[in-house]
Design a binder for these strands. Structure first.
Length: 567
RNA sequence: CCCGGAGUAGCUCAACUGGAAGAGCAACGAACUGUCCAUUCGAAGGAUGCCGGUUCGAAUCCGGCCUCCGGGGCCA
């Protein structure tokens, strides 16, 4: 005997007259004394059970798991429920069995006003609701669509280690102590980057993986400690071929979830344009409000703040600001690193007619100006642009995908004063600039590309270095000695020296992608069991302290921590 | 680490300038044979996140802390 003959949401008039077994959760019950109605729910939907006095319906409570046997009956015309797919039928229960009881619930299933911490603490209940069912199923469908696309395109799914060698550069690693090697640690992989390159050198030509990655950095709406990425790598390719595959994967995912896909090819902008117009390398292109430059026009201004600044930039906002509103924005921009934020109308008295004309602010609008280093002005105005667009509700409900190209290969390292890579150390420089002055590499561009959807960075990729000399030059530019390079990345240098094909690839964050696909504001709605911002799991209570003996076995000892209960 | 917001019954929220902590839903008891998030009646439910201070009197004001959310820093 099976637990059920049919799922709850599948019952239709065609089943009338059949004696069927159904099973599911008690969604609601309406107890009329001699007659009890129960909406029985599973993930496919609900069906109404009708129980007579003798069937034990009074004992049922919300979220009990029950099995019912009965005849499917047509409802009387005036008893049809048009809000239910199964609303034309009901089950006249002959026997009912309670398979599992439930204590009173901390919240009602499907209540979308419940605080997220409570939902996460009782995620198994949250998952019974329509929202998580939809999101996790959509996530599955999107990944299935991606896998299908990759398979069709001849990519080979190769598993790479989660436990690997730590890298001091870039994001912090999660460390794994090793009992057999006391005092030594694996790092959880931040991405399969080097392994997939080795797969190319190993002759696999097209690799992909839905890879789990780990980064020990503060959590955000779009960041968890662990996340998955569509990770792919191709040998003997140019940039365009990689982009083409990625667009195919994105479209494949859209089609798999039944949404109309964005038009290909996706538009492109350069890093320089993104930074100057939008102050961000992942600009939200759903709206304008572009950053403009008034440096030339104010170079000889009598207004010293403008005249003496290395750069004067501004955005024009379709609103006038009160003094209080302006002051609030000033406080915000100072927080972001600006010295101030000038409202053009307030400093207009110091400016000439010509200067004011150069700004060209229409009536009813305001120009908000930052006079500072170019980098600061771009950064601050970029953040302000986003902030005001959200606040003033200027972002249309559309989807914009685009690529960003021509990133610098290196950037200044504020912490150590030297140079470091902008994305990772394995991105190839653009053709023709394979040689540079390691002490001043700021002008070298990399064959790097980012994919952006509505201002979220979905992922990035590059054509990699396949020439061992170029790779050594990159390490050197980062201030690594030959010995250091050899000890950290000797295996890569060896591999590159033994017949490395030209290759390149990409990595796209699955949770970010699905969150946008599902219209969710953060990736916790896409992750079955996410962590909260403090880096803890409210469901299991992890992480937990470990007994000293366990730590000792792994060759480590915990530093004493202040006990918050005593403080 | 920094900035901002929030924390009142199991859940979601009220409580004006400091003046007796309240509602809906859930849970509990009861009535009811056609409801559909049934209805009606009844009873119950609270150290107002924690610690301290001001006050005749604090959910409300002040100080410190905790937790969650958003963001900055950080994050190929």
């Amino acid at each position: 005997m099976s637990w059920r003959d049919i799922q709850c949401g599948a019952l239709r008039p065609e089943h009338v007259g059949q004696r069927l077994t159904v099973a599911g959760w008690v969604d609601t019950r309406r107890d009329h004394g001699g007659l009890v109605f129960v909406d029985l729910r599973d993930h496919t939907g609900k069906v109404q059970l009708v129980l007579k006095e003798s069937e034990g319906g009074h004992e049922l409570r919300n979220e009990f798991v029950v099995q019912a046997v009965g005849e499917v009956a047509a409802r009387a015309p005036d008893a049809v429920n048009p809000n239910l797919a199964t609303g034309e039928v009901e089950i006249q229960v002959e026997s009912l069995q309670i398979l599992s009881r439930s204590t009173p619930l901390p919240f009602q299933i499907g209540d979308d006003t419940v605080e997220e911490t409570t939902r996460l603490r009782y995620r198994w209940l949250d998952m019974r609701g329509e929202r998580m069912q939809r999101n996790l199923r959509m996530s599955h469908a999107a990944v299935a669509g991606i896998r299908r696309t990759m398979d069709d395109l001849g990519f080979v799914d190769i598993w790479t280690p989660a436990m690997t060698r730590g890298t001091p550069e870039g994001a912090r690693d999660f460390l794994v102590p090793v009992r057999l090697q006391p005092g030594r640690f694996f790092a959880l992989a931040q991405s399969p980057q080097l392994f997939k390159q080795l797969c190319m050198i190993g002759g696999f030509d097209r690799y992909y993986q839905i890879a789990t990655c780990f980064r020990d950095e503060d959590l955000r709406a779009d960041r968890q400690f662990e996340f998955r990425q569509l990770d792919l790598e191709m040998a003997f390719v140019e940039r365009e071929e990689v982009l083409d595959v990625m667009e195919a994967a994105v479209v494949g995912a859209f089609e798999a979830v039944g949404k109309s896909a964005p038009a290909r090819p996706f538009p492109r902008i350069s890093y320089d344009e993104a930074m100057s117009k939008y102050g961000s390398d992942k600009p939200d292109l759903r709206f304008g409000m572009e950053i403009e430059d008034a440096t030339a026009a104010t170079r000889g201004s009598e207004f010293g703040v403008f005249a003496n600044a290395p750069c004067v930039r501004y955005i024009v906002v379709p609103k006038t600001f009160s003094r209080a509103e302006h002051e609030r924005l000033v406080a915000l921009t100072k927080e972001w690193g600006a010295k101030g934020l000038a409202l053009l109308s307030q400093v207009a008295k110091f400016l000439s007619e010509q200067e004011l004309e150069a700004f060209g602010v229409p009536d009813g609008s305001s120009a908000l100006c930052v006079a500072d280093e170019e980098e600061v002005a771009a950064h601050v105005l970029g953040l302000l642009r986003l902030h005001l667009a959200r606040e003033l509700d200027l972002i249309p409900d559309i989807d914009v995908f685009h690529w960003v190209f021509d990133f610098p290969l290196f950037e200044k390292d504020d912490e150590y004063g030297g140079w470091t890579f902008m994305h990772h150390a394995f991105t190839a420089p653009v053709k023709g600039s394979e040689v540079w002055d390691p002490s001043n590499p700021g002008d070298v561009r990399g064959q790097h590309y980012d994919l952006v959807w509505n201002g979220w960075e979905l992922g990035s990729g590059s054509i990699r270095i396949h020439d061992v000399d170029v790779q050594e030059r990159v390490f050197k530019t980062m201030g690594m000695t030959d010995d250091e390079a050899k000890s950290k990345f000797g295996f890569l240098l060896d591999a590159l020296a033994m017949g490395a094909p030209p290759h390149g690839g990409f990595a796209m964050g699955i949770e970010r992608f699905v969150a946008l696909l599902a219209g969710e504001p953060d990736i916790r709605q896409i992750v079955a069991f996410p962590k909260v911002s403090s880096g803890t799991d409210p469901l299991t209570g992890a992480p937990t302290p470990m007994p000293d003996g366990v730590l000792a076995e792994s060759g480590i000892r915990a530093l004493p921590q202040e006990d918050p209960a005593k403080a």
